[in-house]
Computed example of a mutant assay.
Amino acid sequence: MKVVVIGGTGLIGSKLVRRLGEQGHEAVVASPSTGVDTLTGEGLAEVLEGAPVVVDVSNSPSFDDQAVMDFFRASTANLLKAEAEAGVGHHVALSVVGTDRLQGSGYFRAKQVQEELIKASGIPWSIVHATQFFEFAKGLADGVTEGDTVRLPAGRIQPVVSDDGAAAVGRAAVGAPVNGVVEVAGPEVFELEEFIRMGLAAHNDSRKIVTDPRATYWGAGLQEDTLLPGPDAHLGEVRFADWLARQQ
């Protein structure tokens, strides 16, 4: 089966393309580097020809509030229009656990708009909500660092390795549309501060980590369970400590 992967050169996209290929599917990478630009629509008609499934794992190159909103609104609208014209029968998108609870953040407001466009498109769909990936612990810390101090909100998190995130998207892609959201998360729940502390320690990063009641998560306030999946989430098996040890 031909599966077009929008954003197929990124962290999740490259893993997904490899996984689908190993399963015998024709996974087609679609990104600006391959001549496909969802922001302008360039190359979409050609790459979607004969594809029953499209997977969107692309991300905005900028996290500025207006830029990220413009990206997801235009990119998703162009992609869905091209899919309708090509007769695509299943649209799969990767999003984030807690998106609807993180609307204080410009990024998550943009992701919510993306999801709403998908649901209203008339094309059968599946949305995969993943928790934070192990690989992004340092990036999360970098985004809330002031001087040599990482300021984090209180809350719990259930991070997952990117391989399991890609596997969940792959299962959705080759399965029937669910016209709903499926969740994937890791096997362990951490305090957010503990997760970041472990990630930085593995890199011998000596930044001070504090829980600050004024701190936000990408601009949004957190409740204790904002970042946690529901009881029906698919859970991976890779523990964060074991993954960290392998990176070293």
Rank of each mutant, 00 (worst) to 15 (best):
D100N: 07
V96Y: 01
A86N: 02
V55E: 03
L44E: 07
G180H: 08
A202M: 05
R197G: 06
A120F: 03
S162Q: 06
G106L: 06
L222C: 03
E191R: 13
T76V: 08
D64Y: 12
D37N: 14
M1F: 07
R73W: 10
H203P: 00
D232Q: 11
V184T: 05
T9Q: 09
E224R: 15
A176Y: 06
R151K: 14
A110D: 01
G106H: 03
E26T: 15
Q23R: 15
P124F: 08
T34N: 04
A93E: 02
R156F: 13
F72M: 12
G122S: 11
F195A: 01
D56W: 12
E194G: 02
V96S: 03
L20V: 07
R214Q: 15
A77Y: 08
E26R: 14
E146T: 15
W218G: 10
T216Y: 06
G41P: 10
T9K: 06
Q23W: 09
R19K: 15
R19N: 12
E83N: 10
A154I: 08
G165P: 07
L227I: 13
H234M: 15
G50D: 13
V210P: 13
P61T: 10
H90I: 07
H25R: 07
V53I: 13
V128T: 01
D225I: 04
S14W: 07
D64F: 12
D65E: 14
L48D: 06
I127H: 00
D148I: 12
A84S: 13
A120Q: 14
I6G: 00
L200Y: 01
V181H: 04
Q23M: 15
